[in-house]
Design a protein around this nucleic acid. Structure first.
Length: 271
DNA sequence: ATGGGCACCTGGCTGC
DNA sequence: TGCAGCCAGGTGCCCA
């Protein structure tokens, strides 16, 4: 599910509920996520005040007084803010109970999400230390992208989904960004011309920002912390529009498979 | 170093 | 109605 816009929407949605609150307790109903939730995490985190809630790539970082909780939503995860007294539903694996009486409830049917603990700088954690620059930061520019694409024979779509090179862009936004840049997803990264990188960078940033503005994209499971879907789905140009006419040139949108993931593009607009 | 394929999991949909 | 097969927003790991 969640790519950068959905994770950022989640961060913004839960921030008012968690900022400066004390974590009263953490209830782990199902520790078997992508990695087992450390048995000691509830004990370690309880009683600490939330100093800051950050996002790095698709990870949410809860900085506490003496350690950080690292949370990833995986494919089907979502976090909701609700009263701690509400009865849990299936797949409500974790509750982070706050001193306000509210809780953050983590629901994740497929259990590809994760919840980890570190006392070090979380950015040096093995899962985070090799992540590429944030796509909405100044560091991510045409020079950067052309440099990392140089000599890479992978398809440009797969390059965009390699978190060591570009973060936050998943299966939806990779297809969408390439559409807006007018670039075929199948082209080798090495074959992208120098003058195409500015448009590609611009498209990635534009798509991510626009999706954040709409509260993300809901295809199936994703809901924001208020339980509401994201509305960017209506603004998708190619994703899950197989056979439908391109919104620009009316050519039917095509679907192919790259790296075992569906890719969508317009044969008319993307060269 | 790079790239390809698999694995982890559940649920919803399709078609026989 | 039942069920097998396929697909889904991520990403670490193993292998060539």
């Amino acid at each position: 599910m969640p790519e950068l816009p959905e994770v950022e929407t989640t961060r913004r949605g839960i921030e008012p509920a968690v900022a400066s609150r004390i974590i009263e307790r953490i209830i782990v109903r199902e520790p078997r996520l992508r990695w087992r939730v450390p048995a000691e995490l509830p004990m370690l985190a309880a009683g600490q005040r939330v100093q800051q809630l950050r996002r790095r790539a698709k990870y949410l970082l809860f900085d506490l007084e003496r350690g950080t909780m690292i949370l990833h939503l995986g494919m089907s995860g979502s976090l909701r803010v609700m009263s701690a007294t509400v009865a849990p539903l299936p797949h409500d694996h974790v509750d982070i109970v706050l001193d306000s009486g509210e809780c953050l409830r983590f629901n994740d049917p497929r259990r590809f999400g994760s919840l980890l603990w570190t006392t070090d700088d979380p950015l040096t954690h093995p899962l985070l230390k090799s992540l590429a620059p944030e796509p909405l930061s100044d560091e991510f520019d045409a020079d950067y992208l052309s440099r990392v694409a140089k000599g890479r024979r992978v398809a440009v779509k797969q390059l965009l989904m390699n978190s060591q090179l570009v973060v936050g862009v998943g299966n939806i936004y990779a297809s969408e960004a390439l559409f807006h840049a007018g670039i075929r997803p199948t082209r080798s990264a090495a074959r992208i011309r120098r003058d195409e990188f500015p448009a590609l960078v611009k498209s990635i940033r534009k798509v991510l920002r626009a999706a954040i503005r709409e509260g993300g994209t809901t295809l199936r499971d994703y809901v924001n912390p208020d339980g509401m879907p994201g509305y960017f789905r209506q603004k998708l140009f190619v994703y899950e529009r197989t056979g439908e006419p391109c919104r620009i040139c009316k050519t039917p949108i095509r679907q192919i498979v790259q790296g075992q993931r569906s890719t969508y593009f317009c044969p008319g607009c993307q060269k």
